[in-house]
Design a protein around this nucleic acid. Structure first.
Lengths: 201, 201
DNA sequence: GGCCGGGCAGGACAAATGTCACGGGTGCGA
DNA sequence: TCGCACCCGTGACATTTGTCCTGCCCGGCC
């Protein structure tokens, strides 16, 4: 019997997937988690064979949680299941030790199939996405640039960002300018969107 | 037997929900649609008793589709099932003639229950959300202001927006300024976010 | 040691943005 | 008929933003 941990914040999605997986005769959902910071605890308690992790979770990112899980429970495989097939997400997922990367766009049948393939030792990755991840190259933004850009997502002014990060306004504008340059965009907003699309934040 | 139409762009979610509803002994999913502009056609072909519509769909918004459906197939009930419980969405859904409004956060069991309640003639609405919708008041943005703001979502400059909408740059800035004022925000980006949060776009 | 790349900051400048006051036009309801 | 809200535009203005250039400090690497 394959023991599955399911981390997903949308209740309806989580419930539906759990129900679906429990229908498979050889699978059992042993834990359902709605937040990223509860993944490791739940895993230690139920010791699943595989963990299905969403990326954008409250509390802690699924990618970070994947890395934690790798340490705490190395024998547990990780399969990332996410809405957004961002190249940077895929890259980070692989670096965090995930065995597979699935987008929620595909048909449901893919899910159970992917689980079995991962447990058989295969790596499951959308081929088109893999190509995109490679062609997009690695994250060109320095840690500081990422910080400044993430602080700018919700329309914060330079002064706001400078205050939040304890930087001079001039420095903030320099970082923003650098980020705009590296993303090949024309302003803050486009830079934020581009960085997000690539999974660089 | 209750005939259900399911409109949802995420393949995995769509498949899982369809499977789940088909497990109910008195329900049958007669149509699955991944795009908003195919809802009416599918409904006319299969004449469902109820349509479950996501809001953010490619092609045509689920809210617009709900209004279309109301005209084309008045006997078909509409239940909005969405990720985002934005007050403005709820308001617009009701105006479009929806009989219920469900957020995907809740447990799966709610879904079948809501379907049955809607078909029994009830209106299904999250009480907390209803309060938020009323307290938030109606959409203060004029149609033009909405257009300009939507054109600004992805970081377009004033010149871009003016070109796209065939307006003078000065006019665009006036509309943006008005929108910023009405949303009580400090700049474009915040205005866009605030308007989105309220479901005004 | 010298040579980067990264973090941090300042100044100066052009361009974009946000605000305000002011016009004119239309259509709708009192 | 009048007022009012919305649409569209202009011009002027202060502020913000984005760019470029300069400088300093640090740590890693050849």
């Amino acid at each position: 019997m394959i023991k599955v941990l399911l981390a997903e914040d949308q209740g309806m999605m989580r419930g539906a997937l759990a129900l679906l997986l429990n229908l498979e005769t050889d699978m059992e959902v042993v834990a359902q988690v709605p937040a990223g910071d509860r993944i490791v605890d739940a895993a230690l308690e139920t010791s699943p064979d595989i963990a299905l992790l969403d990326i954008e979770l409250p509390g802690r990112s699924g990618l970070d949680a994947a890395a934690d899980l790798r340490e705490a429970l190395p024998e547990c495989k990780v399969l990332i299941v996410t809405t957004f097939g961002r190249p940077g997400y895929l890259r980070r997922a692989m670096e965090a030790g995930a065995c597979g990367f699935l987008v929620k766009d595909g048909p449901v049948e893919e899910l159970a199939a992917a689980i079995r393939r991962v447990l058989a030792g295969e790596r499951v990755i959308d081929p088109g996405l893999a190509a995109a991840a490679l062609s997009a190259g690695p994250n060109p933004l320095t840690p500081r640039e990422q910080e400044v850009l993430t602080a700018a997502v919700d329309g914060a002014t330079v002064a706001d960002i400078a205050g939040k990060l304890h930087l001079s306004q001039a420095t903030v504008r320099n970082y923003l300018s650098a980020a705009i340059g590296k993303t090949g965009t024309r302003n803050r907003m486009e830079a934020v969107r581009a960085a997000r699309r690539n999974g660089w934040l």
